[in-house]
Design a binder for these strands. Structure first.
Lengths: 126, 126
DNA sequence: GCTAGTGTATTAGTAGAGCAATACACTAAA
DNA sequence: TTTAGTGTATTGCTCTACTAATACACTAGC
C-alpha cells in the first residue's frame, strides 16, 4: 500500500501518480483490473477526493488507466508499455535540459556523454 | 545584450542568472571586469533593482562574481572554471532525476545508458 | 564634508499552485 | 424507481514564489 509524505515538497497528487505507476508496473494491479475508487483511496490516504481525482485524471491522460462510468478506474491493457514510453519521455526532457546546459557551455555530444558516464558511476543503484 | 521574456514561466531573476553565466562564459565580461551595476541593468531591462540584485547574489553565492563596496560587481578570476563546475552539478541533478525514474521501472545502469544514447542522437546540436 | 554612485533591507501586492468542503450528476444493480 | 456507489464541478482558503515601490546604508572621489 502506497503511503503519503505530508511534509514532502512533492505535491500529494504527484506522490499518488508516482505510487500508482509503480504499483501498476510491479503488477499489484494487472491489466483491466479495478483500482481503488476515488473515495476509497481518499479515505485510506486521509486526503480529499479531488486530490485523488487529479492524480487519476493525469494517469488517464497518459493512457495508464481508463474510467468506466459509475464503476471506477481500471488499468489499461497495454499500460506497462505506455508507462515505459512515458518514462522515456520524462527522461528525454531531462536530457534536453542537460543539452541546453551543455550548449551554453559550448560542449559537444561526446563531451556530454563523458560527463554523463562519470556522473552515472557515482549514482547509487540501490 | 541579454533580453528578458516577460511571458516565460522562467522567473526573470533566473533568466538573468542564465544570461549572465552565458555572457561570462562567452567572454563578454572577462576576469575582473566590471558588470553593469544593479541599477543600470535594472533600467536597461526595465526591471526592479531587487530582481537584478537577487540574480547577482546567486551568482556571487556560486562564486562566479564578487562585489566591491560602492563600486559594483566583478567577474571572478576563476569564474569560467566555477561555471563549468556548476554546470556539471546541474547536469548531475538531472541525471539523478533520470536514475530515479529508471529505478522505479527497474532499469539498471546499462539500460539507462542505452536510452540516454538513443535520445542524445535525436537532439539538435544547433 | 558633499555628492553621486554603489548594494541592501523592508514592506506590500499579485499570481499561481495545492488542497479541501461541499454540492452535483451520472450509472449499475436490486 | 430507488439506492448506493461512481466520478465531477464549484468555490474558497492557504501558502509560497516572484516582483515592485520605497527607503536605507555604505563608499569613492571630488
Amino acid at each position: 500500500m502506497m503511503n503519503i509524505n505530508e511534509s514532502s515538497p512533492v505535491p500529494i497528487y504527484q506522490q499518488i501518480i508516482d505510487g500508482m505507476r509503480r504499483e501498476i508496473l510491479a503488477g499489484v494491479f494487472g491489466p483491466d483490473s479495478r483500482l481503488p475508487s476515488i473515495r476509497e483511496l481518499a479515505l485510506a490516504l486521509k486526503v480529499n477526493p479531488n486530490t485523488i481525482a487529479r492524480a487519476y485524471q493525469e494517469l488517464e491522460a497518459e493512457g495508464a488507466i481508463y474510467f468506466k462510468r459509475g464503476q471506477g478506474a481500471f488499468v489499461t491493457a497495454k499500460s506497462t508499455d505506455d508507462l515505459l514510453r512515458q518514462a522515456r519521455l520524462e527522461m528525454a526532457k531531462h536530457i534536453g535540459e542537460i543539452m541546453a546546459i551543455a550548449r551554453s557551455m559550448g560542449l559537444d555530444r561526446s563531451q556530454v556523454r563523458k560527463i554523463f558516464d562519470s556522473v552515472l558511476e557515482q549514482q547509487e543503484v540501490k
